[in-house]
């Protein structure tokens, strides 16, 4: 089996890795905004719920969360397949880190932007949507980019709950061919390239959002 053939054998795994990365990124994005904004809410219950979610997912290890959801949750009557567990757990995990990014970025928008919006008779919701978030989003993008890479790296963990992602396929291939060095170097390079591509993608979005802006950009 030559190197090209080894790579061909890794392709199905690569596809699963990409699907999980993108699906959980989407979930993480939604969770980050929901929890991050809830943390800033005036309703105490919402703030408390968001804090519990954030502390829980940031305080325990991602792998322990995956194992718990895959092996322990069925005993409580909730049985999910490995793919769902992987996407949901990783999404919620990174979402908890993202929530702090959202909170920090919204809080970093200068106070007088709120005052100006109030003076123009904007409701709280409209001010948030039209004035605050567009400015906060610019500050969120670089840390979101870092979290996306963290997410990509943590998808390797789903191989340990029997999902046949890139890491899993590499292990299978290693067991059958014993060409560890080649296989793992290929896999490391693939992850590295995906990370670079994601980085570039986030940079493009950053450029798009700061286009023509010479004010309101938070350093």
């Amino acid at each position: 089996m030559d190197t090209l053939e080894l790579m061909k054998n890794l392709l199905p795994g690569l596809k699963i890795t990409l699907v999980i990365t993108l699906s959980s990124a989407l979930l993480a994005f939604v969770a980050a905004f929901a929890a991050g904004l809830a943390r800033l809410s005036k309703v105490r219950l919402l703030r408390a719920l968001a804090l519990v979610y954030i502390d829980f997912f940031r305080g325990t290890s991602a792998l322990v969360q995956l194992f718990w959801a895959y092996f322990a949750l069925p005993l409580l009557g909730i049985e999910l397949n490995a793919m769902t567990v992987g996407i949901v757990v990783l999404g919620l995990n990174i979402g908890a880190y993202g929530a702090e990014v959202v909170r920090g970025a919204v809080q970093a928008v200068p106070r007088n932007q709120w005052d100006a919006a109030a003076a123009l008779n904007f409701t709280h919701a409209t001010a948030m949507r039209r004035i605050i978030l567009p400015q906060a989003l610019v500050a969120m993008l670089p840390p979101f980019g870092n979290l996306l890479i963290e997410l990509l790296k943590s998808t390797a963990l789903v191989s340990l709950i029997t999902l046949s992602d890139l890491t899993f396929e590499a292990q299978v291939l290693r067991a059958s061919t014993l060409r560890s060095a080649e296989i793992f170097i290929i896999v490391l390079v693939i992850y590295f390239l995906i990370a670079q591509a994601l980085n570039q993608g986030v940079k493009m979005i950053e450029k798009r959002f700061t286009l023509g802006r010479d004010y309101g950009v938070i350093e």
């Binding site: 790296k153 340990l160 890491t167 590499a170 590295f192």
Partner: peptide, 15 residues
């Protein structure tokens, strides 16, 4: 920084 720790562990352990 941009490759998974799990693979790095495997690399040191198997390669």
């Amino acid at each position: 920084r941009s490759t998974p720790l799990l693979i790095q562990i495997y690399f040191i352990f198997f390669v």
